[in-house]
Write a protein that binds this DNA or RNA. Sequence first.
RNA 1: GCACCCGUAGCUCAGCAGGAUAGAGCGACGGUUUCCUAAACCGCAGGUCGCAGGUUCGAAUCCUGCCGGGUGCACCA
Length: 573
Amino acid sequence: MNLFTHFTAIVHAALAELVSAGTLPAGLSFANVGVEPPRDPAHGDLATNAAMVLAKPAGTNPRALAEALAARLRSAPGITAAEVAGPGFINLRLADSVWHDQINAMLGAGADYGRSTAGAGKRINVEYVSANPTGPMHMGHCRGAVVGDALAGLLEFAGWGVTREYYINDAGGQVDTLARSAHLRYREALGQAITIPEGLYPGDYLVPVGQALAADYGDRFVGADEAEWLVLFRTRTVAAMMERIRADLALLGIAQDVFFSEASLGPRVQQALEALQAKGLIYEGVLEKPKGEAADDWEPRPQTLFRSTGFGDDQDRAMKKSNGSWTYFAGDVAYHWDKLSRGFDALVNIFGADHAGYVKRMTAAVKALSDGAVPLDIKIVNLVKLLRAGEPVKMSKRAGTFVTLGEVVEEVGKDVVRFVMLTKRPESPMDFDFAKVVEQSRDNPVFYVQYAHARIASLGRRVAEAGIALPPADLTLLDGDELAVVKLAATFPRLIEQAAEAREPHRIAFWLGDLAAAFHSQWNAGNDDPARRFVLADRPELTAARLAMARAVGQVIRTGLAVIGVAAAEELH
RNA sequence: GCACCCGUAGCUCAGCAGGAUAGAGCGACGGUUUCCUAAACCGCAGGUCGCAGGUUCGAAUCCUGCCGGGUGCACCA
């Protein structure tokens, strides 16, 4: 139980007493009664909205109810003051001992401080990246990869059972194109001169694939009919691409649990269709002509359709093409049907902005298949614009000259990439400037947080070098400014639960910046007044207390970084 | 034409299941280094939260309608 749930329980108990005493009528719901830190710390340590929420249903006025509740709360353990303010807030001040206990909790729980059971062990599937296996990952995939992985880590920390998953689009025309492209490189490896026609993948990442195929099969497929080699080449090339993608993901510290092959769906596509059919959601029909452009060659054709409009979609969606073959969507429905069959309590997909139009039909499908029992939450991650000192980095996909994820990670480092990708709400477009993200200054949030942690780490070394023998920490020696940093750090468990609930890992990055700022501020107070420094050779008791505080804050920073998959630096260079 | 995302300080962005005077960085201006990392800190200035209604004790936040910017719109994956 964390600080906030603890005091929420105390408020609820006090309300129950008021009910017993007849001050409040029975049968009120306390569900919306919460405890949170007030925006302005001058108001106190915690505030509750109880009186404002309950006044109306209780048929009383907020101030009167607040006074009655505050009177009860004043005698609760850990509360030193309860004042009614504004429209009916009750501001609570907590005893210093509460914060001393928090320091001990941070140090005692270590990397588990803030870990929550909010997820209650429920199982959640987070699908992210799912880049087509037709080439190496580029920066467009990177943001989704980081956001998805950080979200998975966050949910895990919040008590969910998380499966990290990747959907491999290894069926359909594009992987045939890939196989043909590899066949060209195969011929090239055998000494033939090739030209790469429009429509095939020109990237030289297929060169080694062609060489491997040449080494394994010699020239037996050079002049052979496509039917003889297509499947083989496709399998080999997709495998090679996936190997590279996994290696790139590994550079980012990402290792997904399940790699689900579209080609392996097999009969499940038909089964998923039948599942929808059994619910009366499949029919043969003709879609309306699309209103946008690029529909010149449109003509009405009867198709097998899914009635997704019954679940919030704009139009019904084709499960089969007019020639009777499956659509990509049908495969995706089957894939999600498979996810449901694996017993997940919730699903999350991370989509790129170009798939935003796909959200409604997918949520509709999951709603239909699970009868609304399993929520599918689709997060849209917007584009990343690569810059170098303010100038856009030139990229041409056709020429195969895009910047790969591997190159970026190699240049600036895994931790920088991960943190920076979380310094903006995912649905907004982002600029990623190579020069700025490695800059060591205040406007680089990665550096700023790392710097705070490194400063804290330096304290231990400093004490050892000075040969100060530290007594056990007497935390009552800490002053109000020092406890203010602790108070902020103590909101970490609440942050975790709220960020997990909202599925928003970026909140952790922002919060860490705030915590780092609070710590830097405290640290620099020692510049104005040497007595406020952390390490004072002639005051071992005070040093011990301040060191305990700093270590506790350092632990929380480390844990917060770990949740989003970033390593904390012991020192900076 | 429809759908989704965005619109908050000069710039880049936060804003926590609606809550008390809307926050931070950069930039501008003014300070702080015989001192634990000044790679930092402090102060000051700057906002009709796109516009107009609605719900509410209370709206940047929820709803509706506009305006502006972006993206996507059969049987491609």
